[in-house]
Design a binder for these strands. Structure first.
Lengths: 206, 206
DNA sequence: GTCTATATTTGGATAGAC
DNA sequence: GTCTATCCAAATATAGAC
């Protein structure tokens, strides 16, 4: 008997259904809030009964975890192909990407960056993906001699702040997102400023 | 009959119990998360049965609303008595107060500044209190000719970002809060910078 | 893999006695 | 005002037939 290396249609179908479930979950969460996702609603949305979901995910938290992993993967996959070498252009690019990623899907933002679902903790595997995304950003910072923790933390604070304000106070709008270039300039001015007014001292400061 | 203007002990007792309920709610939320508050647990915590709570609050959301209003009132009441006139000192003071307020009670922060409880919207009365707090800050900005929306929004983004990062990634720590002075300097440098690299142009920019 | 049926728990809220 | 008793709805999850 010849074993023809056929496509595994069963596996394809299965992972297709998994993707369908996650997509439906995304839609429901966007409509009703991340915390109010229910397996009944979710199953009905794709023409199944609730117990059938357990053939694809072992629990509700496993669905959250898959959404978390998917979100982290998107953060990785959709990142700018090349970050400009110029300091200001680079910061603008990174900051702009992060903010637009966060406001493009507030539910995803809540799941990835706020810790607000009572029983949910991402699995080690999922968390590792998010760590990879962070590491790639850190590399660019290191290439520009900006890998001091205070500098990186200040940068992430600026990005988080713009995203948080936009999503909390005016979801879907641009009142804060349009400040990205301005914020990038603010950050770059600060980290390139002279030491007459020491900001984030590279060494002991007094 | 002489009507002696006695203290209304009944009203005192009632508002005392209301305060007790809110304090117990705060404790439970801090322990289990804002979203997982239950009326049964809450009542048990103060030696009552769940239905009795309805003598003090008409619904669970009314409890959330009272917590919201209380938080806003705290933001007002505990604000610095006097904000320094000097620009950098003033920004440092305002930013420092806001951030320490946010990280002092992450649950309160979540309730006031993130919109994450599925069915809850603050009442108009409660929301008005938070507006008052914002207005007072705006006045200081106006006194320094900084009341352009972009400047204020950039400032709130910086404050929110520090608080959000601290509460999400290291609740109770100081990895981000210790950056407050640095962030204040960054902000002030930016808004006082020359127009060679226009930041938040006061007038039309091209 | 999907279903029906159900276990089990839990939640907010109400009725009515005391 | 507080309680007991209860309603009603919803949730996650499992058992077992098909």
């Amino acid at each position: 008997m010849l074993e023809v290396p056929n496509r595994d249609r069963r596996a394809e179908r299965r992972s297709g259904t998994r993707a369908e479930i996650l997509e439906a979950a995304r839609g429901l969460c966007a409509a009703n809030g991340l915390a109010s996702l229910s397996l009944r609603d979710l199953a009905r949305q794709i023409g199944l009964k609730a117990p059938s979901l357990y053939s694809y995910f072992e629990s509700k938290n496993a669905i959250y975890d898959a959404m978390f992993a998917q979100g982290c993967q998107q953060l990785l996959d959709e990142r700018p192909a090349r970050i400009p070498t110029d300091l200001l252009d680079g910061i603008r690019t990174i900051l702009g990407y992060f903010v637009s990623f966060c406001v493009a899907d507030p539910v995803r933002y809540q799941l990835l960056f706020q810790r607000t679902i009572p029983g949910f903790e991402p699995s080690a595997q999922s968390y590792a993906i998010s760590q990879t995304a962070m590491r790639l950003t850190l590399e660019w910072f290191a290439d520009h001699d900006l890998d001091r923790p205070e500098v990186v933390d200040l940068f992430t604070a600026v990005g988080s702040g713009i995203a948080a304000q936009q999503n909390s106070n005016e979801p879907g709008g641009d009142r804060w997102t349009r400040l990205v270039d301005d914020a990038a300039l603010m950050f770059v001015r600060h980290i390139t400023a002279g030491d007459d007014q020491p900001a984030t001292p590279r060494r002991k400061s007094r």
